[in-house]
Design a protein around this nucleic acid. Sequence first.
DNA 1: TAGTGGTCTAGACCACGGC
DNA 2: CCGTGGTCTAGACCACTAT
Lengths: 267, 267
Amino acid sequence: MARTAEEIAAVLRDRIQSGELQPGDRLPTMDALADEYEVNRQTARTALNLLKNEGLVEYKGGRAGTVVRERPAARMVRSRGMERDNLGYYSGANVQHWRLIEGTQTEVTTEPIPADIAGYLGIEPGTPVVARKRANGDPEVPAHRQLTDSWLHPEAVAAVPVIAGSSGLGGIYDRIEEHFEQPILWEEEITAINPSPDEAAALLLPPGVPLLRVIRTSTVKVDGRPLVVEVNDIRMSAELFSVRYPMTRKGAARWPVQPASADFYTS
Amino acid sequence: MARTAEEIAAVLRDRIQSGELQPGDRLPTMDALADEYEVNRQTARTALNLLKNEGLVEYKGGRAGTVVRERPAARMVRSRGMERDNLGYYSGANVQHWRLIEGTQTEVTTEPIPADIAGYLGIEPGTPVVARKRANGDPEVPAHRQLTDSWLHPEAVAAVPVIAGSSGLGGIYDRIEEHFEQPILWEEEITAINPSPDEAAALLLPPGVPLLRVIRTSTVKVDGRPLVVEVNDIRMSAELFSVRYPMTRKGAARWPVQPASADFYTS
DNA sequence: TAGTGGTCTAGACCACGGC
DNA sequence: CCGTGGTCTAGACCACTAT
C-alpha cells in the first residue's frame, strides 16, 4: 500500500497516463486520498501538489475540486522564415493578425543589457542599450501570446539613428540594409527555460509549463567582420507552440550527393 | 515583514538575481529563516522548496545545506543542418564524438506508436511500428547527453525492409533515397516540455530544468504526395543546450528585394 | 451553506554528509 | 557526532465556488 506522497502521486500519475482518468475528470479529494491510503491530509495534499507542479492536474476552485488538465491536443506550429509585405520584413506568416495585448504598450527604454543578450551582441554586460519590449497575441485566443524584447547594438544605433525611434519594428531591417548596402543574415537559436513569475503571469502560463525561447540575431558584415545589429528575444508557452525549420544540406550533403568511393572505406 | 512562504521566497529570489547571493553561496537555513521572519520551520521550508523547484538553489546534503545553484554560463549551441561523411548522413557536427551512454543499449522494438508521433507519420495512434531508442552523449562530459527515439513509417519499412534492421541509423537515409530515387526533405520542429521522472533520471536533470525536444521528420514524395518515412524524437536538457538554424528568406523577402512601389502605401 | 484546496503552526522522527 | 533538509502526523483557520 502506498504510504508516501511520492507513491500516491505515482499511482495517480499512472491512472492519468493510462487514460483511466480523462482530461476534465475529477481526482479524489485530499480527504478521500487520506482515507484511502491511511495518511494525513497534508500528505495527500503533497501528492496532489506534485501533480499540479507537473502540469498534469489543476485546481478548479471550491467545490469543483482538482481535475485532470485539458491539454492542447496539438501545438500551433510556427514555420519560421523571413517574409515581406509592402510594409517590410516580418517573420511567421501565421501570426500576422496578432496585436498588442490589450492594456499593454510597447516600451522603448535605454537600459543595462543582461549578460545573456550581451553575449550575442558581443558587448559588455550592463552596457546601456536601446530596448523595445512588447506583449502581443491573437485577439481571438487569449492564451496565444508571446513576449518580444528587441535589443539594438549601440554601433547600429550610432550608424542608423532612426532605428532607435519608437516606430514599429517593421522598418528597421530595411533601414539597416539600406545603410550597410547588404542583406541581413538572420539566425534563430531556440532553447527553453522555466518562466519567472512575471513571465508566467504575462503569458497566462499554468504551473508546470516551460517557456519556449527563440532568439533571433540580425547580422551584417562591417569591414569584413560580422556585426550583430539586433537581438530579438521571443518567449512563448512551450505547451501551446512549437517552431519549425527546414534543415539545410551542408557540404557533402548537398544534393545530388556524390557516392563515396570504395577507397574511403578501406582507408 | 514577509510572513508567507511566497514572500520569503521572493526576498531570497531577489537576493540571488541581484547577485548578492552568488552561485555556490549558502542560503540561510530553514531554522534561520523561521527565526528571522518569525514563522514556523515548515513555512521556511516551503519557501526554500519553491526556489528549488525553480532550479535556483539545490540542497547539497547534510551540513552543506542549501546553496545557489551553479548554472552553466552558456549553453552549448548546436547548429542544425544535415551533413555527410563516408559513412552517410548525420546531423550536428559538434557531437560526432558522442557515444552510447555506458551501460545502455540501442533498443529496437515494434511497439504501439504514441499519439503525438503518430500525428507526424499520419497513421493511427497505437499502430505497431518499428522504434529504435538510444541514449548517447559525450564520454568526457557526463551531463552532455540526449535521448533519441526513431520511429519508422510502416509503408517505408514495407518498401525498404532493410531499414528496420538493427544497423545504426547512418545508412537508412541512403537506402531510402536510393529506393525512392529522390532527396529526402528534412524538417525539424522544436518545443519543450517538463521531463517525466524517467527522462529526468536518464538525462541527469536537476529539478526545475525543462526538456528541449527536437522532432525531425524525413519526407519523400510518393505518387505526388508527401510520405513521412521517419520521425526522430531527440530530447536534451534545455539548460545545457540550444539549437540554431539559419533563417530562410521566403517569397518577397528573397534577396535582392524589390522595393514596394508608392502605390502600395496609398491603396 | 457546504465542500474543496491553501496555508500556517507545532512537534516528531528520519536520512544524509561533513566534522 | 550533530546540523542540515525531508517527511509525516495533527489541528486550525482561510478563500473560493458551486449549490
